[in-house]
Design a protein around this nucleic acid. Structure first.
Lengths: 211, 211, 211, 211
DNA sequence: TATGAATGAGCTTTCATTCAT
DNA sequence: AATGAATGAAAGCTCATTCAT
């Protein structure tokens, strides 16, 4: 029946469509409040069909997360051991978040609200992946501390959380205010501002006391 | 008949006990997954009794939030218009988060995961209070920008979100790792570290380029 | 503690107060929807106290009905075997309904809606009393048929139901429209109208064809 | 796949089956005491399925009432403005009640006990329909008064209530006694008796006083 | 593949009733 | 006599999941 390229492609496309619909709905209602009916409706199919492609609701959720983590880890690995600076490695993470936010804001929102900030949906498997990500980021930060790029008077783990917290916050603003990123220029400015505040702080460069 | 001072006290105490139990359960399962049965069980009472004290599950949730916001706003107001610096005002907010974390880590966790980071439970009334808080914080930040204490090249609203994001992140570490704050000393160190990173950034004070 | 006349009087008074309150509430909400709390509130007492005076909700309901039936049967017995005409006997029934409607409209409403017209609350005991009343009325009607006062081409039982139906309807109008009976004059007019239509029908006395 | 004509037919049939089961149960227990479980059991399905066909218990009840009113109003409209006499118009109403009683005694019982005689279930919408019916009947009666067919010394509204009260009473007898109407002959006799008593009254045509 | 009828566990909420005080 | 805290059965409704077609 599949005339596109192969039966497999058609299947993948449908799966993608369901995942997209699920993102929309889960973002709007939260995972537990999102009903299969809603997702099916958003995908324009019957709810029974969802079960042809995904074993269960949890399975569908994991498929969503897989898209996120696969992309993030592959991005991080591209920069690993290539002689780039820790700042650039963190920049790559920021870049991934902003890229994804442009392409799939719902996905970003879900990762932040349902995983980063909530322990409710954290099954042991999901938690393991999440911790893996934090660990990898912490390694980058620690390398930066070793290279005296980042201050060492605060534990790497703390700096990591602050970095990710700031990143999430920034993305949260965009998400909550529904602000689309307009053009490469703005994307650049946001990325810079984020790194800027994280690295240099909120303090005025030229404080009045200095005069 | 009441063992304390008056019948009212006994009632308040029971209400408090239910609220405490609810915090425990909601923290562990999330608001929507927390069942009244669980809460009652945690409080050592029958589920019917919960409805003797609270009109509904939502009502109970609002009672929980009220405890948080009442305390936070009264803290903020103590510092308002008293000639204190913007940094000190932000410090008071940090102080409240850490204080509450020591006394009621579950409450802090709930506020962060169910309110700050989730739009699912945000009824219009709850959102209004949350926005009120952000607005008040933004005013402090804007005042700091006016006094040239904070950098003005980033919108006050952005700085506010970053500040709150960092604060939440920090508290989240404590919460997620289940780390108790040990003594006034550590509490002080955390508060300082937080302000420090927010104000001065993560960059090493003495970067290698300066040699 | 009872200073009125005797402890028993005080008890009876309280019971009456609860019954009155119950009538109010049951009339407004129906028996099953009437909550003990509502009744207690209407009586100005705590709901626990209701159980000092009545064993259960059903018991309270039976006490209400008892007031109605006791009064009705004693009225009917006053006219029995005293040489009065069947019309006068039916008139006595009408009189009781109207009297009670003036004094206790809620009670009348309850008897009509919860007993006469509903089989839901008809426990065997209650049904027996109700059937007793219908039987007694039917006897009056049958006597009227025997005395050629009422038409005999329709079964006594049917005439009885029509009579009671008309009576209930009439009272229902008053009840539904919330019309108080103003003075003895109006009461008389209503009683007459009711008997008039029941006995002589709705047909115009002087039909156009007769002209 | 539908054994009948189309999938829609199958759906309608199931809806009808549920409505029938609901009539049975509601008749026996009253609307508020009728549990969805009972209805489902009576229909031979799981209770969850009831909600597949009806949004809520109230929705199901409204569907029941709709069947009644739709039929009644369409019957009344068939006779409207067709040059028929007021008596014939009232006769049509009687006819509808008796027809329905033969076909669906439970439905008739419900309409009488849950709507005509109880204010408990009267939501504004339901009350509006009921009042509409009374208003239409009153117009017929008023037309009869204008044509000098009905007596004018009693308000049209009163006569209307007495007529409907008598009708309901009569049907109530049948319902309460569980008497089936045997054949067209008996149906005719009942209809005549009803009109007869309403129009000409219960008084013996040839009373003894006349002698 | 695709549909949606069908199921039933599970949740919130209500409320009659009991009972310690 | 009087209160109202406490209990828990029961009911309406939701929704993930299964399955016949």
């Amino acid at each position: 029946m599949a005339q596109n390229r192969s039966g497999n492609d058609v299947k993948k496309e449908k799966e993608s469509a369901i995942i997209d619909a699920a993102c929309q709905v889960i973002r709007a209602k939260g995972f537990h409040q999102a009903r299969i009916t809603d997702i099916a409706q958003a995908a324009g199919i019957s709810y029974g069909l969802v079960y042809h492609y995904f074993k269960s609701k949890a399975d569908l959720f994991d498929a969503i997360l897989k898209e996120w983590w696969t992309g993030l880890f592959s991005t991080m690995e591209q920069f690993q051991n290539r002689g780039v600076s820790p700042e650039e490695e963190l920049d790559a993470i920021v870049g991934y978040f902003l890229d994804q936010y442009e392409k799939r804001p719902d996905l970003v929102h879900i990762v932040i609200t349902e995983i980063s900030r909530s322990s409710v949906n954290l099954t042991p498997d999901r938690l393991a992946v999440f911790k893996d990500f934090i660990g990898r980021t912490e390694k980058i930060v620690a390398r930066g501390q070793g290279a005296r790029v980042f201050r060492s008077d605060i534990r790497a783990r703390y700096l990591t959380f602050i970095f990710l917290g700031a990143l999430e916050s920034f993305v949260s603003i965009l998400v909550l205010e529904g602000r689309p990123i307009k053009g490469r220029g703005e994307r650049q400015r946001i990325a810079v501002a984020l790194q800027e505040v994280f690295l240099n702080g909120a303090k005025a460069v030229d404080p009045p006391t200095r005069q």
